[in-house]
Amino acid sequence: MFKKILQSLSKSQAAKVPAAPVSKPAAETPKPGAVLQKISKAAAPAASQTPEEMCEIAPKMPKDQIHARLKLLYRRYNRSASSLDPKIRQEADTMLDAIVKVREKFFGEI
């Protein structure tokens, strides 16, 4: 039922970018190993957003959906919190704070 076509990060990104002028250096060869990169950065949360907005919790969302959403976000951002990129780590920490605040608001403090 599923057909899986290999897509490497460098190829899929190169396909989206118009041909580089001759004077530009060729695409950098990534270092083998380590965390080479994230596919693309998730949008950074804006400082003015409320925790609910950051977590994309709609005003009338049912509690079970909020719970599922928070679980998904926690898994994602807990992982990002150990990134070697300080910027990603900081964003993840901000998101984890927001996730905890939303959880406390809708489900009470521990």
């Binding site: 290999l6 490497s8 990060l9 460098s10 190829k11 990534p30 083998p32 190993g33 380590a34 965390v35 080479l36 990169q37 994230k38 596919i39 693309s40 950065k41 998730a42 898994r75 994602r76 992982r79 990002s80 990134s83």
Partner: peptide, 22 residues
């Protein structure tokens, strides 16, 4: 040239996994 990225992470969304090798 076939390029195969090695990912680490559970998320289906490729934005939320690490590419740890190629």
């Amino acid at each position: 040239v076939i390029e195969v990225d090695i990912t680490q992470g559970e998320d289906e969304d490729a934005k939320f996994v690490d590419i740890i090798g190629r």
